[in-house]
Design a protein around this nucleic acid. Structure first.
Length: 501
RNA sequence: GUCCCUGUCGUCCAACGGUCAGGAUGACACGCUUUCAACGUGUAGACGAGGGUUCGACUCCCUCCAGGGACACCA
């Protein structure tokens, strides 16, 4: 049997370092067993998936040095490798389950489900589907579906008993079926949920080993159940510990830069980033810290994966990156790399219209545009002081803007402008005043290139990191204060939504 | 709240019944250096707690505690 593993990212945002981390282990496992590594796009969430995101993810994985044997761009014998192009297959398989009595149609409204959930929460029970449509006769179910009544397909779950999940790295995990929800498999839009699509595809693509984040352990019984229902052999499971923020919570863009694009932009070398990810939860037998993909593969052993959730430590990554710059690049390569980084036509082109009006000599360039190349601008609390705003008001502007930008679906100057204007309105500040602290936090100076374009060019994670940095420079925001602001922020959002219809 | 996972220096990893618990990073100190880095040397710093099992437990078992994850027509 050929070992086949996969990475199955969902194209709903910037390429995540966690994706590269999981991909790396899948890659190493497959390759060290003479197998194949597949890339599949899980874009069944129509509302959030975009082609831009998909392209960025593929490019980012290639950038760190991972290549796949089969995927949406390179093809392969088990395609298509994009779930949105496989919907017929899922419907077919939902029908099989329906036919075998392992699944049922559910006509419940969203309102009813929320109500049930609310009641269960109030009664301190685990929120679960209550089985309302389970009792529908096959005839009635089929008739209502044929009549075009909107419905979903849910999987059935055994009344009693326990599911034993075998994980490559852990003792057998026992989960009672009473804990497993009757998961929706086919949404009312006819597209599958993760659980169905994942199982169907892993089977049809011949995936033998599923290495994925630990967050999936609790839904493993659903997947195992599905394999059983279809009469398929389940792949071996291996749940990797989750990358963490410094506060130990699951790595999130809310608290940390998580986008590979950010690390790219900050000037990390792809080989250093990949090396660092290989040090997360794993070590070389001789404990060496600096190693390339080839060396990692030469010594790879799944059983050397440790299970404590590793904190993604940018400081240590930075140290490692420094070693690569010092030890692995000769002068020519050094130059080539910085050119490839930001000192090239493609990266410079968008700066021209912003910079040209503001310089008289080339030597003005560093002053005007140097911050584009910078990490965190060297600012102090004094720099952020504003004659019309109290220090706390400044913090509030930074904090709100951070929240707004991190939730912004699209990332372009127009959307950013609209958001920042809205923020000023809600905070009842003149745009000019509310923008002042942002100029400083983003560019390091009171005035700079136009803010909206600048933020757009800097990218989401780098902009957010600078806002966070600004807040830190001001001494940080207390949990209590943050809570209060968050409440007001949510309320403002709700009001805005209502006003906007 | 329910279920599940995890628990070694602040952080990342070693040691898988017998070591003064090791390395790296970060911190600090000293050296080198015009400065800063880099580099070199050194210092502080951990087995979550309590019970067992054993001649002997970081390592095995139990209880507790702590952290994390999951509980969607998102993945």
């Amino acid at each position: 049997m050929t070992v086949r593993t996969r990475i199955a990212p969902s194209p709903t945002g910037d390429p995540h370092v966690g994706t590269a981390y999981v991909a790396l282990f899948n890659y190493c496992f497959a390759k060290t067993h003479g197998g194949q590594f597949i890339l599949r796009i899980e874009d069944t969430d129509q509302a959030r998936s975009t082609r831009e995101s998909e392209g960025a993810i593929l490019a980012a994985l290639r950038w760190v040095g991972l290549e796949w044997d089969e995927g949406p761009d390179v093809g392969g014998p088990h395609g298509p490798y994009r779930q949105s192009e496989r919907s017929a297959l899922y419907r077919e398989h939902a029908d099989i389950l329906l036919g075998k009595g392992h699944a049922f149609r559910c006509f419940c409204t969203a309102e009813r489900l929320t109500e049930v959930r609310k009641a269960q929460m109030a009664a301190k029970q685990t929120p679960r589907y209550d089985g309302h449509c389970l009792s529908l006769s096959a005839d009635e179910s089929a008739r209502r579906a044929a009549a075009g009544e909107t419905h979903v397909v849910r999987m059935k779950v055994p009344d009693g008993g326990t599911c034993v999940v075998h994980d490559r790295l852990r003792d057998p995990i026992h989960i009672d079926y009473s804990q497993v929800d009757m998961q929706v498999l086919l949404k009312s839009d006819g597209l599958p949920t993760y659980h169905l699509a994942n199982v169907v595809d892993d089977h049809h693509m011949g995936i033998t080993h599923v290495m994925r984040g630990e967050e999936w352990i609790s839904s493993a019984p659903k997947h195992l159940l599905l394999y059983g229902y279809f009469g398929w052999q389940a792949p071996e499971l291996c749940h990797l510990p989750l990358l963490r923020n410094p506060d130990k919570s699951k790595l999130s863009k809310r608290k940390n830069p998580t986008s590979i694009l950010y690390y790219q932009r900050m000037g990390f070398l792809p080989e250093a980033l990949l090396n660092y990810l290989g040090r997360m939860a794993w070590s070389m037998p001789d404990e060496s810290e600096k190693f390339g993909l080839d060396q990692m593969m030469a010594h790879f052993d799944v059983d050397r994966i440790s299970l404590g959730g590793p904190v993604f430590d940018v400081d240590k990554l930075t140290w490692l990156n420094g070693r690569y710059i010092r030890e692995d690049l000769d002068d020519a390569q050094f130059i080539e790399r910085i050119v490839r980084w930001q000192l090239n036509r493609e990266a410079l082109a968008p700066l021209v219209p912003l910079v040209r009006p503001r310089i008289s000599t080339w030597s003005d360039l560093v002053d005007v545009a140097g911050f584009f190349l910078q990490g965190m601008p060297p600012i102090t609390a004094d720099d952020l002081a504003h004659k019309k705003l109290e220090p706390q008001e400044v913090q509030r502007v930074l904090q709100w803007t951070q929240w707004q930008l991190e939730a912004l679906p699209a990332w372009d100057a127009a959307a950013i402008e609209a958001t920042l204007r809205a923020t000023a309105g809600v905070l009842e500040l003149k745009l000019r005043d509310s923008l002042a602290p942002l100029f400083v936090a983003i560019s390091g100076k009171k005035s700079s290139t136009p803010l909206f374009d600048t933020i757009g060019l800097l990218g989401r994670d780098l902009s957010l990191a600078r806002l966070r940095h600004g807040l830190e420079v001001l001494g940080g925001v207390s949990k209590k204060q943050q809570g209060r602001w968050q409440k007001a922020y949510r309320a403002a959002l709700a009001a805005q939504a209502e006003a906007g219809g």
